[in-house]
């Protein structure tokens, strides 16, 4: 059973192609992550599913209903949290919540158990205008409002953007609880490290899907030999690695530089020697397992080589 079925979706704004032939199926009860940088088309795709936009090509079914012809049915059962904070700033926390409850023909009491964990954290401030809440609290209120009518499907557009790591972690813990209550969650994020929180993810870049799989599959499909390099002068080492003629791609990653050679078989110590010859000191070189970001980088690097940007 799929809660979202996206088939051959293309969307254009004038001459700009925002989405190009997208196909995604989201299973009932899973957390599906749409991962990609700003401008990749994440918001457009989520708005298409939310029945807010109309595609140029293809079809989308959400909860079994067509997003164009049966949008009213979808709107009844959908929870949606837009990318930027979109509640009434001049209404208090509780007024916002009650408004959204009444609009969906329900009451705060009726579905209180669903939002209890989240809402109880902002309840002490329930008479404060929503515009005067801190970032983390706004986000919790927005999620509470999106959940108040007990939606079957939750669409979250970059809920953690601009939120500090602590609030981000708490937010993902809340999503896991919601998933356990049986709600299907479709969430977009620019943060690669959040991918591991999802059951399945899709990489999106420049309006195209690069890959769809579980986070584990994506990592196990990574078949390059990934080397982490560290030295006293990271910038110099990076520049030196770029001059190697056996280079496939290289990029800094945290405290290390990640390097992939174009040869399948080669000795790591060879690279070490070259770097030493070029005057790098205190070099550390090791073979490592990739993370989600490495996989995304690889997909992007490979495609970027195919077509030069601009």
């Amino acid at each position: 059973m799929y809660d979202i079925e996206i088939k051959n979706i293309s969307k254009q704004y004038g001459d700009v192609i925002a989405l190009n032939n997208i196909n995604i199926q989201v299973r009932k009860g899973e957390i599906f992550g749409l991962i990609g940088p700003d401008g990749a088309g994440k918001t457009t795709l989520i708005r298409l599913i939310a029945t807010l936009l109309v595609q140029n090509k293809g079809e989308i079914k959400a909860l079994g209903y067509d997003t164009i012809s049966q949008f009213q049915e979808i709107r009844n059962k959908l929870g949606y949290m837009p990318g930027r904070f979109s509640l009434y700033q001049d209404l208090s926390v509780i007024e916002n919540l009650e408004l959204f409850a009444s609009i969906f023909g329900t009451t705060v009491e009726e579905n209180y158990n669903l939002i209890k964990d989240i809402y109880s954290q902002i309840e002490p401030f329930k008479n404060r205008p929503a515009g005067k809440l801190s970032g983390g609290m706004k986000q919790k209120l927005a999620l509470s409002c999106a959940l108040i009518h007990k939606p079957e499907l939750l669409l979250l557009d970059e809920p953690t953007t601009g939120v500090d790591p602590v609030s981000r972690k708490e937010f993902w813990e809340m999503l896991s609880k919601l998933k356990n209550m049986g709600i299907t969650i479709f969430v977009s994020t620019p943060y690669m490290d959040e991918a591991s929180r999802c059951d399945r993810i899709a990489f999106i870049q420049a309006g195209e899907i690069l890959d769809i799989a579980t986070p584990d599959e994506i990592i196990s499909n990574f078949d390059d030999k990934l080397i982490a390099v560290k030295s006293d002068n990271k910038y110099k080492t990076l520049q030196d690695l770029k001059t190697l003629n056996t280079l496939r791609y290289v990029y800094p990653s945290g405290e290390y530089i990640h390097y992939v050679d174009s040869r399948k078989e080669y000795s790591i110590s060879g690279i070490m020697e070259i770097l030493e010859q070029k005057g790098n000191t205190n070099i550390e070189l090791k073979l490592i397992e990739p993370n989600i970001e490495d996989c995304f980088m690889k997909e992007m690097m490979v495609r970027a080589n195919e077509r030069i940007i601009h």
Binding site: P190, Y251, P252, E293
Partner: peptide
Amino acid sequence: GGVDPITRRQFWEMIYLKSG
């Protein structure tokens, strides 16, 4: 914020250069 991973790294390389 919101910049893709590749461009983010290019950005940091620029930072390294200027710091140097």
